[in-house]
């Protein structure tokens, strides 16, 4: 490889959403990926949007592989698979529902139990457009975030306010350089079931 060759600077991270039902997790993903909001959208059936890339400074692309709960949070039925190898989490509460912040704190404890120790967590208060109905003060939630070393944002999936910010701030915290280095050196012993090999490395006459 010559020195002039542009080295692709690309890193991929798994991002999980957590929080009580109806706080707006799916709406946040929808806003981030499609930049739209649908009041009546039932649920995320067959969720098509699973990834979104963002560009950082110095030509670095960060791709989020986004896992929405698919409703499995409702009766506390998220599988260990959900947390496995998650690099970052957006833990959502609804600023108009005091109880939803308590639930968010429980999800953060669950993350500390089940996820990687170095996971980046953003505590996110949603429905900022409903300021008049606010039950959770910014100060209280922010203090909790500071005490626990979490990012903190307030957003509205409905208006789009603050949404991009959540993901850019997470991206800034992620170990992008490390990830780029390790993907370049990593050997791939894993198998892609969708692409059976055609090149058997030993002559097989069967």
């Amino acid at each position: 490889m010559s020195i002039e060759d542009p080295i692709p600077r690309f890193a991929q991270f798994k991002l999980v959403l957590l929080g009580e039902s109806a706080v707006g997790k799916s709406s946040i993903v929808h806003r981030f990926v499609k930049d739209s909001f649908d009041d009546l959208r039932e649920s995320t059936i067959g969720a098509a949007f699973l990834t979104q890339t963002i560009k950082l400074a110095n030509d670095t692309t960060v791709k989020f592989e986004i896992w929405d709960t698919a409703g499995q949070e409702r009766y506390k039925s998220l599988a260990p698979m959900y947390y496995r190898n998650a690099n970052c989490a957006v833990v959502v509460y609804d600023i108009t529902q005091l109880a939803s912040l308590e639930r968010a704190k429980n999800w953060i404890k669950e993350l500390q139990r089940q996820a990687n120790a170095d996971i980046t967590i953003a505590l996110t208060g949603n429905k900022l457009d409903l300021e008049a109905e606010r039950e959770v003060s910014t100060g209280e939630a922010q203090q909790y975030a500071i005490d626990n070393g979490l990012l903190f944002c307030e957003v509205s999936a409905k208006t789009g306010d603050g949404i991009r910010d959540v993901f850019y701030r997470i991206a800034e915290q992620l170990p992008v350089e490390e990830q780029i280095r390790s993907t370049m050196s990593r050997s791939k012993p894993r198998i892609n079931l969708n692409k059976p090999s055609t090149n058997t490395d030993q002559g097989c006459a069967c």
């Binding site: 649920s43 995320t44 067959g46 409703g71 499995q72 409702r74 009766y75 039925s77 599988a79």
Partner: peptide, 22 residues
Amino acid sequence: GELPQGFARLSAIYGGTYMLDT
């Protein structure tokens, strides 16, 4: 154990409702 979890997720994404510990 990843296999049942994976298919459960498929079901949930297509609207299946999950209740563990029930």
